[in-house]
Nucleic acid binder design. Sequence first.
DNA 1: CTAATTAATGCAATCCTTTGCACAAAATAT
DNA 2: ATATTTTGTGCAAAGGATTGCATTAATTAG
Lengths: 353, 353
Amino acid sequence: MSSTLKDIAEKTGVSVSTVSRVLHDNTKKYKISEETQTRVKQAAKEIGYRVNALARGLRLQKTYEIGIIVPDIANPFFSAVIKSLAGELRQRGYNFIVYDSDEDIAIERSAIKSLLEKRVDGLVIASVGQDYSHIQKIRDAGIPLVMVDRCFDALDVDSVSVDNVKGSLLAVDHLIKEGHHRIAFIQGLPGTYANETRLQGYKSALYAAGISIDEQLIVGDDFRSHNGYLKTKMLLKLLDPPTAIFTAGDLIALGTLEACRENNISIPGDLSLITFDDPDFASYLSPALTAVEQPITKMAEMAVAMLYNRMKNPDDERTKILLEPKLNIRSSVTRISSVTNITQIMKTETIKE
Amino acid sequence: MSSTLKDIAEKTGVSVSTVSRVLHDNTKKYKISEETQTRVKQAAKEIGYRVNALARGLRLQKTYEIGIIVPDIANPFFSAVIKSLAGELRQRGYNFIVYDSDEDIAIERSAIKSLLEKRVDGLVIASVGQDYSHIQKIRDAGIPLVMVDRCFDALDVDSVSVDNVKGSLLAVDHLIKEGHHRIAFIQGLPGTYANETRLQGYKSALYAAGISIDEQLIVGDDFRSHNGYLKTKMLLKLLDPPTAIFTAGDLIALGTLEACRENNISIPGDLSLITFDDPDFASYLSPALTAVEQPITKMAEMAVAMLYNRMKNPDDERTKILLEPKLNIRSSVTRISSVTNITQIMKTETIKE
DNA sequence: CTAATTAATGCAATCCTTTGCACAAAATAT
DNA sequence: ATATTTTGTGCAAAGGATTGCATTAATTAG
């Protein structure tokens, strides 16, 4: 079906080696006569020759492919990350293969298996989290790898992510400054890097403000919108409901919006909302969402640069980079009066005792 | 670095063939003794063996990879399509490689080149449009191919897309029923299948209602949000601005929302808005967007089924499938009084003469 | 006890490309 | 005219896996 170097060789009467050299050896290391060159090129075009990347990769032990794994392609945050990574990689002459682990660590494992079988030259992984033994194996096997967004503090691997703790601090501090004391946190998948660090930021902010932590207000179990929907409904049913909700991801916030709409709760009138992640559509939502933005382009740029460096210098020391988040204040948070605050605090105390 | 069948063979003292058969021949066509099997499997595990997909693909002339090309990964519509395709493919034991053509036909071409070099078993393409000579070549080369969403009427290739004309009719009819006569259309990339068919639906609806077409109200040149933003600003500056806008894609609608917000135009108070594509967040926008929904899951399901069939039966007749769109009425369209209508019509007439 | 099966494994070709080394012919130097 | 260098090209191995055919040893049949 598809033609090979051999076909061209037969057609032009030269050897396969010569054909290969004409078509791919940009170096003039081998001196092929002008005449042969044109004859071969001509034949290649006529016959519609296309190099076989499998054979080449096999021979060269290099594929110019990078594997990318994210927990959810359809999540605007990750699709933006992929898009940025793709641009960076293309510039450097690399292609990429994306896998969607669907927030499932078993799929993540099998994705890694597939990619390694394909002999990709490197990996960029936004891990589901929870466990890192499989990632550790990749590193130990000496395969270039960088983790983005979702990484592991305890694992010594190149990584670039946003300072999640700081992002949460920014968000919760803002709520506190606006007079909120009863602030709920709807988390993503527990045990996950992104989640634990964001939770930590939430707790620190409350602690720093002298607000005691109410475990009832920490709910949720994954990054999907349905989680936001369900948990918001639960929070609203509390005897002493929160005056503000901080969600760990954009999709969760969408679920919260849906629940509020159904229950005729006005945001920010009745409830303030702030979320981690700042997708393109955040400012067009009703109301425009106050959100913590992550520097996606920067993240992709650095990830590729780090991967590139790791491929060149396998023995460099590994680095973990933390980028600065940014709080974009829009209109989903309202100031509440200090009178209310005091009542709130008293209420909280009462429950606590 | 990574181990091969040969390593295992040496370690266990059997031949490479035997190792291969133990590890991959699920058929019991060759009878390998239980003892050898366990010895080989054991060694493979110890040594961390991993098949080389390049070598296997080369030998088998089959890679179990499907190439996917879309114009914009970050567009929620396409990322949803990819996600659905991915699920379908995985079920059938296929992997996939995604490329983002960035709405650029040159990148699309080079993506196709790359994928064919990798010897993918089939292709799913949402083409940029404009030209199809490169697609025709794939078909003529006998490579299994199905087009989704963006296809070509004039090209005989398996394809599945939504009935765009009907979708536009649904949208514009709805506007007309709500009393609108001055309806603008902000298009996507001209020359594109999706765009031309949607435009056609828009025109037919107006024609059927006896409303003359005002070329001033047909604007726009790509599917990005910036296009929506710019063109909305222009439309608003018209002496006789539209009372409703119909946008050819979700991102365009986002741009329109932004422009309206900046100009203090209330939707649907001052202007009604309806869009093609219905992303998850459409119902949470301000206002909740009335939108034409495409059956994405169905589309992916059928695309994979068709591709699968084409791989099995290369000579079957090719089919073009059109799926039904659905209008989701929310709150971005308002009814306008017939008095206004008449004035509007008169104004239009005046300009026309 | 010989002939015919069956069980268990190995040989070697094939898939396609790349590249170090060898070699013949032509050009240049001595 | 001989020795040396340069040009232009081919040979063959390597990269890893698969599989039809061949082969040997062990069983079973007759």
